[in-house]
Amino acid sequence: MKNKGLEEEKYLQCPIEFTMDKIVGKRKLVILWHIYDKKVIRYGELKNSVYKISHKMLSDHLKELVNDGIISKKIYPEIPPKVEYSLTKFGETLIPIMDILCKWGIDNQK
């Protein structure tokens, strides 16, 4: 049991492990890109913007991103419910990384 604690401690000390834990998921970076692009985006618009994403995957990724403090979720008390997502200040620190990934994609997409 003691070794498991040491493994977890090593994991928590690795900045790449920490970063990957927060942003890697089948579509997390794409979701973040669309939120960043729109500044504020509703769930339905986000669902339509992310290519081939299921409701479950989008919902799960959004919950993880909210729990990690990367995005915020605002629910309006109306019927039908209106839900909006935006980057938090913490999430905005990922913008330079996303910009670099976008530039790489533009430069290498043929």
Results as ranks from 00 to 15, higher is better:
54 S>A: 11
48 N>Q: 14
28 K>E: 05
46 L>Y: 03
74 K>P: 02
58 L>Q: 08
41 I>D: 07
68 D>S: 09
99 D>N: 15
99 D>W: 02
110 K>G: 05
92 E>G: 08
110 K>Y: 07
86 S>C: 10
97 I>H: 07
52 K>W: 09
77 P>L: 12
24 V>P: 00
58 L>D: 02
30 V>W: 04
47 K>W: 04
44 G>D: 14
55 H>I: 11
42 R>C: 05
72 S>L: 07
106 I>D: 01
70 I>P: 03
100 I>Y: 11
20 M>P: 00
63 K>T: 13
91 G>M: 04
93 T>P: 02
56 K>Y: 11
5 G>E: 13
43 Y>I: 03
30 V>L: 11
70 I>T: 05
110 K>H: 06
75 I>E: 13
12 L>G: 04
51 Y>C: 07
86 S>E: 14
91 G>S: 05
71 I>T: 02
33 W>L: 07
22 K>N: 10
98 M>G: 08
29 L>Y: 06
1 M>A: 12
47 K>M: 12
60 D>K: 11
70 I>W: 06
48 N>A: 15
44 G>L: 13
108 N>L: 04
1 M>T: 10
26 K>L: 10
85 Y>F: 15
1 M>S: 12
20 M>T: 13
63 K>A: 11
100 I>V: 14
5 G>Q: 12
95 I>H: 09
86 S>A: 13
17 E>L: 08
95 I>M: 11
76 Y>S: 09
49 S>L: 11
6 L>Q: 09
107 D>S: 07
82 K>D: 01
103 K>V: 04
95 I>G: 06
78 E>G: 07
106 I>W: 01
35 I>S: 00
92 E>Y: 05
44 G>Q: 14
30 V>P: 01
108 N>W: 01
51 Y>V: 14
52 K>L: 15
76 Y>F: 15
10 K>H: 08
77 P>T: 05
56 K>L: 10
52 K>N: 15
32 L>P: 08
13 Q>I: 05
1 M>P: 05
89 K>C: 03
92 E>D: 07
40 V>E: 15
10 K>P: 00
80 P>H: 06
77 P>F: 07
60 D>C: 06
66 V>F: 10
65 L>C: 01
80 P>A: 03
21 D>G: 10
70 I>C: 05
84 E>G: 06
49 S>I: 01
70 I>V: 14
49 S>K: 14
82 K>E: 04
27 R>F: 15
88 T>N: 00
110 K>E: 03
57 M>D: 13
38 K>Y: 09
76 Y>R: 10
94 L>P: 02
27 R>Y: 15
27 R>G: 00
41 I>F: 05
38 K>Q: 12
64 E>G: 04
48 N>S: 15
103 K>F: 07
12 L>E: 09
78 E>C: 12
42 R>M: 10
74 K>C: 04
96 P>I: 10
103 K>N: 13
25 G>I: 02
9 E>H: 11
109 Q>T: 00
12 L>T: 00
101 L>I: 14
51 Y>W: 11
31 I>G: 01
61 H>V: 04
24 V>E: 03
19 T>R: 05
92 E>H: 08
12 L>N: 13
98 M>D: 01
19 T>N: 03
108 N>D: 02
77 P>C: 03
110 K>Q: 07
46 L>K: 02
66 V>I: 13
82 K>Q: 06
14 C>R: 09
66 V>Y: 08
